[in-house]
């Protein structure tokens, strides 16, 4: 097991390195002169332009820029944002907790809603309950996030006045964005729980448990659910990685000041150091979450061998 974890960790290193390389490549590939974007139509004297180019390292050759970039990244320096003139790493660190909060909130929502409707659908397979539960579960992921969020704001915040539109940092202001994002994610969870439960419910030991005269509730909760948990945990874990980053539009709509909102602004303004920084941090997070999920999965499932 330890060997497996170590091997898995070591495998992560080249992946991370490749990510840094790809992220670096974004800048030379993005059209438009970054200095022009920075000055935004203002005519600056050549001296100022040269200074800015030097500041951004644009006066060097691409290989030199690459080495510089890698060494900066290794030292935790992701450059300076073109638009806010703040260190990118600082901006991201400022916003990371908000995104984490939202991800955890949405994770809980998707877990509860997804598990609930998935179990219901599996237990009452092919009944109207199954149909309704699955259609409801599919609804979340089928709504354009932007429309979903906007309708939620108008209904619950403006018309009903239950929540404030501007997040005030309280737990209450997390409810609406987390619910919206969570409902979107719960669709996939519900599907998986249903499939996993159906598979487990069809197996012999569950049939045996039924035959022994256990109540259906006990069969479902004790026997089936526990065995269905393995694939579900994996998926839910992966979902968490996705949630951490999949919240771009939800964050923008709810004025939730996380990384997603930062990314939306950065892409809209072609703030390339910021785009690179966010891409790098998010991809790294995703890789690490996947790593953790893999390890948990390995620990949970005795069928996996670690050769």
């Amino acid at each position: 097991m330890t060997a497996y974890v170590i091997r898995r960790l070591l495998l992560t290193i080249p992946v991370l390195f490749a990510i840094v390389t790809l992220v670096f490549a974004i800048r030379p590939l993005v059209p438009g002169d970054p200095v022009e974007i920075m000055l935004f139509g203002q005519s600056a004297n050549p001296e100022v332009i040269a200074n800015i180019r030097a500041q951004l390292g644009l006066d060097k050759s691409i290989p030199e820029q690459y080495l510089l970039y890698v060494s900066n990244v290794l030292r935790g320096d992701l450059g300076t944002s073109i638009t806010t003139r703040q260190p990118v790493i600082e901006e991201i660190t400022n916003r990371y907790p908000a995104t984490l909060q939202l991800a955890i909130g949405a994770f809980l929502v998707s877990g509860i809603v997804g598990l609930g409707s998935g179990i219901l659908a599996a237990v009452y397979k092919d009944s109207p309950i199954d149909t309704v539960a699955m259609i409801v579960a599919t609804t979340g992921i089928s709504m354009p996030a932007f429309w979903f969020g906007l309708l939620a704001i108008y209904l619950f915040s403006v018309n009903l006045g239950w929540f404030s539109v501007i997040p005030d940092g309280s737990l209450k202001s997390l409810v609406l964005p987390a619910l919206t994002l969570g409902l979107i994610a719960s669709s996939i969870v519900a599907r998986l729980v249903r499939s996993a439960m159906l598979e487990v419910l069809g197996q012999e030991y569950v049939q045996t448990a039924r035959a022994k005269g256990l109540t259906e509730r006990r069969v479902v909760m004790h026997h089936a659910l526990r065995n269905a948990a393995i694939p579900v945990v994996t998926i839910v874990g992966l979902q968490f990685g996705g949630l951490l980053t999949g919240a771009f539009i939800i964050e923008a709509v709810f004025a939730w000041h996380g990384i997603g909102e930062l990314a939306v602004q950065a892409f809209a303004k072609r703030d390339f150091p910021m785009i690179q920084g966010i891409t790098l941090v998010v991809a790294t997070t995703y890789v690490l979450v996947n790593l953790v999920v893999d390890v948990i999965y390995a620990a949970l499932d005795p069928r996996i061998t670690y050769s």
């Binding site: 108008y154 501007i166 923008a252 709509v253 004025a255 909102e261």
Partner: peptide, 19 residues
């Protein structure tokens, strides 16, 4: 000064008297 990037959200916040 509240920082809100999305115009429709600013409008909603104004309507709910938060702005």
């Amino acid at each position: 000064y509240n920082i809100i990037g999305e115009a429709a959200t600013r409008t909603a916040a104004f309507e709910s008297q938060e702005l």
